[in-house]
Every structure is written in structure tokens, then in C-alpha cells.
Design a protein around this nucleic acid. Structure first.
Lengths: 357, 357
DNA sequence: TTGAAAGCGTTACCAC
DNA sequence: GTGGTAACGCTTTCAA
């Protein structure tokens, strides 16, 4: 039982293997890193090393390697603690692409207070922890923060904001066009866009989706109508008092002619429409088509809402590619990558009702 | 302009500061680590060091520190790539609690194929990358994987599975009880539990929620009725053909007496009920109360569904606490921590209709 | 083929 | 108060 001795040993390093096999540290690491053949190390020696590593339960120390290579193998995702937009698909795209490059994603959430305080930098930026940074704050990034980050001489890219360089974001303008074009194609003439009001400055997509819709309607020679709901509530108390269903209902009841199709800014607006329409005995998709922007065709909704999918999986993958490019050529700026939005047909959209056609 | 020289220098280390200030490396690190007073270093010397660090843009190298201290400051979250259950609240709880301990969360998603292959361990387990591991696979963890992980002599805990030791999970049994008790309290006598069938072996909560419901009904001297839907679809094509709304509707139309309240296993079941009920002109909450299990009172649903909240934020925080305990006393097993489920009242539940009362 | 040795940046102990 | 120095575990170059 040769391995009885080492069973409980705390740390197994390359040196442990060297001692165990009676070889030198260099030989061991050569074999361990697959450079055995290159270094013309005897086959049986190689096997001896590998076997020892297995028996001893050797696991290379990532910190030590990082110290030597200057690469941590980590990418940090930085975002605010509260207002984070982090759909699973995005996370999946990020980790998947990083995994393919033998890297990890480190989550570094930052309290809003810290983000806004010019003087204070979060720990992840004060240390040298990651080979690159991905900034995923949706709401306006304070310029002071952006500035602080860019002076850091660590490669940085941004996610889901509209910037000309070093950024990955979905093509919401063409997404808006696509939504309208799809409905026009189905024969709809009265297509309503339902957005959310107070948020025009909040995120570029509020503008872009709407503008895309307008552009497509104009191209089709159709009138565009935009209806903005009050911003959706943020606390549990507010949401209980929320009257958006009522507001949509009043609007639709008064609308003449009543729209036969609706483009909703996102899930919250689509749900307001859905509930209002249910109360009014309007059936989807027979009487009304409903499409919305979302990050996937959500299976949990049972009756899936036709979705303009903002391709968060691709956004994640592209972000990694862009960041790796930046890590490869430090200091260079790359043009932003705009990810197309795709239509995923659900069960809430169809041809225009006969009545009108 | 003294800092003109160092502007573009690639790496700034403690040695750079030492050279810049003309002090020794030791003095510099003493000051940098706040041991200045303790080491009785002159005030102006300290300021000189701090100023230099600021000017030079010094950021300590985490790998070097990790190498020395033996602690990486990272915790790895391991889960399958596809079937991941990762609500934002959980992530928030994890990163928040880790942040308070100056640690980071590293995401290591693992392809299912790898998880199931006995021989192959994912990179994150083959290396020494993190101080502890959190395993978050919902569906049955292959025993071979669990075994491989526990022989790793890195502290490991599990999340959202039902194990007696080293695990954090929500108290779904008492959650089920709470759901029923709440509705009984409101005067309901005919309370239906709607679950999902094929998944009884899939996750303990399928059993526990249902059993909790049964127990509470029995205690109240009321009959319990369980209706199981076919498992919810996984692909976009299947979801379009999904007939669960129809199934719920048929069931409710035939039910005598018709339930006045429903406990849904989770969002997918609640949505099936919601759509069916809408089609049948049954109003929530006047004619029917609906509650479901979920990780938060979801604001995007506009009409929020009364929720049995499985406290993912607390689960995340507790998980970190437990893991830090394990890191503190390696080798020890701790009893699992069961996080209570809380009722968040939405707009879909209320007193039993007068008719019956 | 194998071994010796330097160095990555940090910390910490021990002299001065 | 301050400075030298060893050690953490790994990689890599150069000799033997």
C-alpha cells in the first residue's frame, strides 16, 4: 500500500510527484503539460509520472501558474447588485465560450452606491484578479466609473449598452423593424406599439425598438401608433396597486379602429396587454396578434408569446470573442458587435382577422 | 511630471513602488496592508507609499497573494450547462455574501456529457482553482460524480437538493403546508393541488410540496385532491403543441365541486391554470384563488400571482455561510440548512366566494 | 533524456 | 522603523 502514506497529505504539488517518483520537478511538469514527447522523455517515465499524479490526486495550482504566466484565466463580469439584467442564456453564452478557451467567469457584483461614488473603486477593480472585464450595467453607467475603468490598463468591454466601440449589444432597431414587418406580412394594418414611458432615457432599446417599428410601418405605408404605459413598478407594494392592465384596457376599448396586432416592448408590457385582452374576451391569436421582445421563447408561459429574441446566448459568446481579441491586442479598440434579433413564432400571432382583411 | 515615465509601464508591483519611493519592498507591503501603525512606520513614509501607489496605479496581484496564502478567494459554482436552475436572487445571495467576505463567485458550467462520464472530470475539479465548491445540479447527480467530488479534499456543499449533510435547500414540505393553510384560513374547502407528473423522481420538491399540502389538508379535516399535468415541454416545437391549458380546462369543467383555490407546483403549472381559467371566464381572485411556488413575487406578470417564495436569496447566503464554515474546518460535515418558504401575497388570492361560504 | 536554477509578486519572519 | 530573505507552486531556459 504505497499510497497509504500520502492519503491525508494536505497539498500535493509537482514536487510531491517528483519525490514520489524520484524524478526532478522539471521532468514532472514536462510530462504533466504534455510536453513529454517533445522533450523526448521515456515512455515508461511518462507513465510513471502520470500514474503518480493519479494516485496522489495531484491538481495543479492555478494561482501558481497564473503568477508565472501572467494570465489568471478569469474574466470578471461586473454589474450592479440590484438592476442586473442577467438572463440564463447570457450566462450560458459567456461561460460556454469561456469554457472553450479554458477560462472562467467570475461574478463581481457591485453595490450601486459604490458605482456612483467617484472615489471608491470596487475590489475587483482595485486588484489584478482577471484578465479582462465585462461591464454589464444596463442603466446609465456613471462617466466617472467608465473613466476609472478605462485607465485600468486591463481589457474591458461593455454589454447591452449602445456604444460605438468595444461593446456587444442586440440590434434593437432592426428588431423593431422585424416585428412590424412580420405583422405586416400577416396582413395586419393596424399595429400598435406598447412601450413604457419614464424609461426613454433608461436604456437605448426603448428608443431603438420603437424607432425600428416606426421605420418599418413607414416603409409599408402604414400609420404607426405608440402607446406608452407608466413605467413598471419596482417594489412588491407598488406592483399590487399597479393599474397598467386597466390602462391598456381603457385604451383598447376607446381605440378606433382597434389594433389587430400589438408589439410589446418586453414581457411586462406583453403581460399587461394579455390580461387586458383576456378581460375583454379578445382571443389570441384569432382576434389579436401579440409579439414581444424577450430573451427566449419562454416555455413556462404555456401559451408561448411570439418573441423577438435578443439572442443573449450569442451576445454572451460574442462578448467573449471580443474580449479575447482585446486581451490579444491590448490597447486596441474594436468596433462594437451588434447581434441580430430573431423572430421565434409562438402561439399568439397569426393572420389578420377576416373581418378586416 | 514625475509620472510621465511610468505612464505606459506594463506592470506595477510592490517593487515598483519601492523603487519609486526609495524604500524597501517590506516597508511598502506593510503600509499597503494597513500594518503601518503596527510596524511603527513613520506617518510621512506611509503617505509617501500610498501616494506612490495611487500615482502609479498599483493593483496587487491576486494570484501572487493566493499562491502565498493558499487561498484563492474564489468559490466555484458548478452546474450542468443546460438544466441549470439559477434565479437572479440566488446569484445575488451568493455574490452578496461572498462579497462581504472579500471573495468571488466563479461560474463553472459543466456539459451534461461530462457530468455523466465517470472517467472525465471537468477542468474546475482537475485544478486547484477555488477554495470551495458549490454544486447546484438539480436533476439527479450521478453518484460517480458526487464520489469524485468528495475525494477531492476541497470543501464542497450542495444546493437545492435534499441531502442530510452539507446542503442548503428550501423547506418545500412546510411550503406546501403553508400554501394550504393560507387558503384554508381564507375559508376555502375545495383546494386543488396542480403538479406535474413525470417529474416525481426529478426533484424532491415535486414530492415535498405535494406532501406538505396533503398534510395541511388532513390537519384541517379537508379532502385533498392532486391533479398532475404531463411534464412541461422542453423544446420550442413541443411547447407550441402543448395541450396543458386544454387539459386543465377539461379537468376544471368536469370537477364537481369545482375547486375554489389552487396550489400550483410552479410557474408553468400556474400559467396553464391561468390560461384555462381565463378561457372559462373564471375571475381571479373573485371566483378562484391561485397560489404558486416561485422564487419571487414576479413584477413582470402585471397581475402578480400569490407566491410561496423559496427564498433563493437566503439560500445563496446560507450556502456561502455553510461553505465558509466547511472551509474553516476541513473534513467536517455539517447538518444541512433548510431555508423556510414564505408567502408573498399577490393579487390572485382572496376569501372563498360567497356562494360556497 | 534528465536535472538545476531562476523568476513570477506577495507575504512574513527575523535581523538591524 | 526599516531592510533582507525565504517561501508559496509553477514554468521555462539552459546544462549535463
Amino acid at each position: 500500500m504505497t499510497d497509504g502514506i500520502v492519503q491525508k497529505t494536505a497539498r500535493v504539488t509537482a514536487a510531491t510527484i517528483a519525490a514520489y517518483t524520484g524524478l526532478s520537478r522539471a521532468t514532472v511538469t514536462h510530462v504533466l503539460n504534455g510536453r513529454g514527447a517533445e522533450q523526448r522523455i521515456r515512455q515508461d517515465t511518462q507513465e510513471r509520472v502520470l500514474e503518480a499524479a493519479r494516485v496522489l490526486g495531484y491538481r495543479p495550482n492555478a494561482s501558481a501558474r497564473a503568477l508565472h504566466t501572467g494570465r489568471t484565466g478569469n474574466v470578471a463580469l461586473i454589474q450592479s447588485l440590484k438592476g442586473a439584467y442577467l438572463p440564463e442564456r447570457l450566462l450560458l453564452g459567456l461561460t460556454e465560450a469561456l469554457g472553450e478557451n479554458n477560462m472562467y467567469l467570475t461574478l463581481a457584483e457591485v453595490p450601486d452606491a459604490v458605482l456612483d461614488d467617484r472615489a471608491y473603486l470596487p475590489k475587483v477593480l482595485r486588484e489584478h484578479t482577471a484578465d479582462g472585464l465585462i461591464i454589464n450595467r444596463i442603466v446609465g453607467i456613471p462617466p466617472s466609473f467608465t473613466e476609472a475603468v478605462t485607465t485600468l490598463n486591463t481589457p474591458v468591454i461593455f454589454l447591452n449598452v449602445n456604444r460605438p466601440f468595444d461593446t456587444v449589444f442586440p440590434d434593437d432597431f432592426n428588431g423593431g423593424k422585424l416585428a412590424a414587418q412580420y405583422l405586416v406580412e400577416l396582413g395586419h394594418k393596424h399595429i400598435l406599439y406598447v412601450g413604457s414611458s419614464a424609461s426613454v432615457e433608461y436604456h437605448y432599446s426603448h428608443v431603438d425598438r420603437q424607432e425600428g417599428y416606426r421605420a418599418a410601418m413607414e416603409e409599408a405605408g402604414l400609420p404607426s401608433t405608440v402607446f406608452l404605459l407608466p413605467p413598471h413598478p419596482e417594489t412588491d407594494e407598488q406592483v399590487l396597486k399597479d393599474a397598467r392592465v386597466q390602462i391598456v384596457r381603457s385604451y383598447l376599448e376607446a381605440a378606433a379602429p382597434r389594433p389587430t396586432a400589438i408589439v410589446a416592448y418586453e414581457l411586462a408590457e406583453a403581460m399587461a396587454v394579455l390580461h387586458a385582452v383576456n378581460q375583454m374576451q379578445i382571443r389570441l391569436p384569432q382576434d389579436l396578434s401579440l409579439v414581444m421582445f424577450h430573451h427566449q421563447l419562454d416555455h413556462r408561459f404555456c401559451i408561448p408569446i411570439t418573441t423577438l429574441c435578443n439572442g443573449m446566448h450569442s451576445v454572451g459568446r460574442e462578448a467573449v470573442n471580443l474580449l479575447l481579441d482585446k486581451i490579444g491586442s491590448p490597447g486596441t479598440s474594436f468596433p462594437s458587435r451588434v447581434v441580430p434579433i430573431q423572430l421565434l413564432e409562438g402561439a399568439t400571432s397569426g393572420p389578420v382577422p377576416n373581418l378586416v382583411r
